[in-house]
Structure formats: C-alpha cells, structure tokens
Amino acid sequence: EQAKRIEPVFNTCCESGKRCSLQLTSKLKNPSSSCSVDVSTVWWEVAGCKTLCILTASEATVSLWKPQDPREWEKVYTWQFTEIPVIQIVPLPDVCNLVCVALGNLEIREIKALLYSAEEKCLQQLRVKAGTIKAVAGLRHRRLVSSCGPLHCQQVELVIVSEAGRRKENLSLMPPEETILAFAEVQGMQQALVGTTVMNNLVVWNLKTGQLLKKMSIGNSYPASICHKAYSDMGLLFVVLSHPHAQENESSGNPVFQMIAINPRTALSIGVMPYCLPHGQAGRILEGEVKGNCAAAVLNSGTIAVWDLFLGHCTALLPPNADGHWSLVRWSDMDSSLLAGQEDGSVFVY
C-alpha cells in the first residue's frame, strides 16, 4: 500500500531542456515525529551481511534503519542522548558498524563514536573528542579531523578511530592562524587535506607530517566559502566550494557551488565552473553535499537543486512537497540515491 502511494517525481531539467528525473523510491517516517537534525548512510552488518543502512538524527536520538523489501525501512537501533543534543552526523567513509556524531548546542562540544557491542550486547557511545569544536570531518581510513578552541590557541587534530570506537592514534596538524570553517579530503591523495577559513583562504596540510603546506586566497567575491571536495590533477588542485554567505539580493546570479583550480606552487587560482540555478530560479544555499560528480543543495526557498559537476548544469529541481519544505540533503554512500529530509523527521529516498 505504501508503494502505491509513492509516485515518481519528474522534474524538468533546466538548461538543456531535457527531462531528467528523480524517482521517489521509499520514505522513512520517524514515528516519534521529532525534529530532524541530520541524515546519512552507513554500512552496517545486518544478519551477517554488510548492508547500506540509513541513519536519522534528531536532537535526542540517532536511529539506524535497515532496508526491507519492498521499499520499506526498519529501525534497528536507536542511540539516546539525554545530556547534550545531537547537532550532526559525522560519517567515516568506508567504515562499517561505526559512525560518529557531533553533540552540542550552538557549537560542537563533543564527538562520539556510536556502535553496537556484540560482546556486551548493547549499544555504545564513546567519546572521541571534547572541546569547543569549530569544524569536523570524517576521512577515509578511519580518520577524523577536527579544529578546536579559540583562534589564539586553535588546535587541529587528526584522530584514527579504532574498530572499538576508541582513539587509536592522533596527530596534531599545524593551525593556520585563521578559524577553519570546513575540511575536505583530496581525492586520490591520502596524505593531503584541504580546509577553508573565515578569511576565505584555502589551506593544505600533509596528514603524514602534520605540516601546513600552503595558505592561498580564493578570492573576495564570496565571503567564508565552504570546501566540499578536492582533487589533484596535472599539478593543479581542483576544489568545489559553496557560498552560503552570498548576498541575498544577488542570489539570482550567484553560483551555488563553484569549482576553482588553484596552483599550489604559485597560489594563483581561476574559476573553472560555476554551478548556478536555472534561469528564473533564485536562492541561497542553506546546506548541501558533494559526492562523486554530483552536488546537491537545499536552498532557502525549501527547494533541493542537483548538479552534475562535469556537465556543469542543474540536472534536477525538487520543490517542496505537500508535507513541507526540504531541510536536509545527502547522497547515499554507494548508489546514486539522494536522501531528502524534512524538519518533521521524514526522509524521502530518491
């Protein structure tokens, strides 16, 4: 019956005039109806089988949902948080049976690893990091990077999280003397990490030595840009940025995302590709995610917009549905699924 109620949503594609589609495949409705703060996917062993599951987070709970045929999701575990609210999920790419979450109020105060202990047959939440955490990201190979503390004594730390959810190794990275806003792995370069700062600089670290290799300006067109993804090719560093603080009155012409190429040797950069909304659409990014060659953003209008990074144009628009505006968007870890969340805790899988 639920499958019958789910109808494909087709969206006219933007600049090419071609019809592209986002097809609704399933819907999760959190029975507690608590306000949703984040959604993500994680690999989890279910009945001996590594399965791509969905995580939903409210301020007081994080729930793991396993897929069930057809188009159904079943809640498997729920971790409870009674003292400090959940702010965001911090997935560690390619890690199974473990996920990190950030807890706090206006700022992150704690990062915890969530797992299920088969030995003790109980859900566990173990502290990985505490402090005034300004930015955090999960990296490949069980690594978690975070920046912590006020500017004059900002600490940047890389932690390797063990399978048991504990701090296994850690390395201090040299701080850039500017508050870090976001981190992004450099695809294909395991030891390289980039970050963006409040002064609109891109910084590059060596994760093996902790060295700060370079601080480079990424222009003054948009303040406080956020880095989402980076890769190195032919001696250049390509970085996908978003501009959450673009001026509202200029939002119709501003790119939501932008790819820049920067020469780390000279710190010179150029814009490669702007990712704009289709003609007639306006909006500023509230939040978004880039994975593979896809980018998605929730706009302040409550619409989700999707771009193909190589084609360079918006490939789908998902306007608010009858249930309300969109507040969250994430890409699935494996396939080309898009998770779209609403404030009431509903998650739609396209």
Partner: peptide, 23 residues
C-alpha cells in the same frame, strides 16, 4: 587554463611543498 594564468605548474607540488614547509 595555461601556465600564464596560474604560473608554472609542478606535478610534484605536494612533495615539493612538504620539503619546503616548516616541520
């Protein structure tokens, strides 16, 4: 883009910057 836009490009930029940066 060309060298003139971005200056001389090095394929080994990561290793070179690691050698030059303070430890």
């Amino acid at each position: 883009c060309s060298d003139s836009d971005l200056g001389p490009i090095s394929l080994n930029w990561f290793e070179e910057l690691s050698l030059e940066a303070p430890p």
